[in-house]
Amino acid sequence: MLGLAPDAARVFLPFVALIGLYVSWTDLRGMRIPNASVLLLAGVFVVLGPFVLPLDIYGPRLLHLVAILVLGFALSVMGVMGAGDAKFLAAAAPFVALADLRLMFMLLAATMLAAFVTHRVIKRTPLRRLAPDWESWRRDKDFPMGTALSTALTLYVALAAFS
Rank of each mutant, 00 (worst) to 15 (best):
L53G: 09
L53S: 11
P54R: 09
L55I: 12
L55T: 11
D56K: 02
D56T: 13
I57F: 13
I57W: 14
I57D: 15
Y58V: 04
Y58W: 15
Y58G: 04
R61V: 00
R61H: 13
L62A: 06
L62K: 06
L63H: 08
H64L: 00
L65D: 08
V66G: 04
V66D: 00
A67Y: 09
A67E: 04
L69W: 15
L69S: 11
V70K: 01
V70G: 05
L71R: 00
G72N: 04
G72V: 03
F73Q: 05
F73K: 03
A74P: 02
L75T: 03
L75G: 09
L75P: 02
S76T: 10
S76A: 11
V77W: 06
V77M: 08
M78F: 12
M78C: 08
M78E: 01
M78G: 00
G79C: 01
G79L: 01
V80I: 13
V80R: 09
V80P: 00
V80M: 10
V80S: 03
M81F: 10
M81I: 15
M81T: 12
M81P: 04
G82A: 04
G82D: 01
G82Q: 03
A83K: 10
G84V: 08
G84L: 08
G84F: 12
D85A: 02
D85Q: 02
A86P: 06
A86T: 04
K87R: 09
F88N: 02
F88Q: 01
L89M: 15
L89E: 01
A90N: 07
A90F: 05
A90M: 05
A91F: 04
A91P: 02
A92L: 10
A92I: 12
A93R: 03
P94D: 11
P94W: 06
P94Y: 07
V96K: 00
A97W: 05
A97T: 03
L98F: 13
L98E: 10
L98T: 07
D100A: 00
D100F: 01
L101R: 08
R102I: 07
R102C: 07
L103F: 14
L103G: 07
M104P: 03
F105H: 09
F105I: 12
M106L: 15
M106P: 10
L108P: 12
L108A: 14
A110D: 03
A110K: 02
M112T: 14
M112D: 11
L113T: 12
L113P: 06
A114L: 13
A114S: 13
A115F: 07
F116V: 00
V117G: 03
V117Q: 09
V117I: 10
T118E: 01
T118Y: 05
T118M: 11
H119N: 08
H119T: 06
R120P: 05
R120C: 08
V121F: 10
V121H: 08
I122N: 05
I122R: 13
I122D: 03
K123C: 13
R124Y: 12
T125C: 02
T125Q: 01
P126E: 05
R128A: 12
R128F: 01
